[in-house]
Lab assay of single mutants.
Amino acid sequence: PDFTLHWNGITIHFKGIDEEQFRHLRELLDRGVSLEELEELAKELIK
């Protein structure tokens, strides 16, 4: 499924991740993950 997340004025689209992965990403963003960390995470998910 696809998810869209609005965070700090940025709209991020996640394609092909499951709800569990999306929930994990939201928790990280709510905790204050940096954009660099988010990019690293995205690379991991894409593999």
Rank of each mutant, 00 (worst) to 15 (best):
P1N: 14
P1G: 14
P1I: 14
D2G: 14
D2I: 14
D2K: 09
F3H: 04
T4L: 07
T4D: 03
L5N: 00
L5Y: 02
L5F: 04
H6T: 10
H6E: 14
H6R: 05
H6Q: 12
H6V: 14
W7P: 00
W7H: 11
W7F: 10
W7T: 03
N8K: 06
N8W: 01
G9T: 01
G9E: 03
G9C: 03
I10F: 02
I10Q: 09
I10L: 08
I10V: 13
T11K: 07
T11H: 15
T11E: 15
I12V: 10
I12W: 01
I12D: 01
I12N: 00
H13I: 15
H13L: 05
F14Y: 02
F14K: 00
F14M: 11
K15S: 15
K15N: 15
K15P: 15
G16C: 04
G16T: 04
G16H: 08
G16F: 08
G16L: 03
I17L: 07
I17Y: 02
E19K: 07
E19L: 07
E19I: 08
E19Q: 07
E20S: 09
E20C: 06
Q21V: 09
Q21R: 04
Q21S: 12
Q21G: 09
Q21K: 09
Q21M: 10
F22N: 01
F22I: 08
F22G: 08
R23W: 09
R23E: 13
R23F: 10
R23T: 12
R23G: 09
H24G: 09
H24S: 09
H24N: 10
L25I: 10
L25W: 03
R26I: 15
R26N: 09
R26A: 13
R26M: 14
R26W: 12
E27V: 08
E27H: 08
E27P: 01
E27Y: 05
L28D: 01
L28V: 07
L28I: 09
L29N: 02
L29M: 07
L29Q: 03
D30G: 09
D30I: 10
D30S: 10
R31W: 09
R31D: 07
R31E: 08
R31V: 10
R31M: 14
G32I: 11
G32V: 13
G32C: 06
G32D: 05
G32F: 09
V33M: 13
V33G: 14
S34D: 07
L35E: 02
L35Q: 04
L35V: 12
L35H: 04
L35P: 08
E36T: 13
E37A: 12
L38V: 14
L38C: 04
L38K: 00
L38M: 05
E39C: 04
E40Q: 12
E40V: 12
E40I: 14
E40G: 08
L41N: 02
L41A: 10
L41S: 03
L41T: 05
A42Q: 03
A42K: 05
A42F: 15
E44D: 12
L45K: 05
L45H: 07
L45E: 02
L45N: 06
L45I: 13
I46E: 11
I46L: 12
I46S: 12
I46F: 03
I46A: 15
I46Y: 01
K47F: 03
K47R: 10
K47P: 09
K47L: 06
K47Q: 11
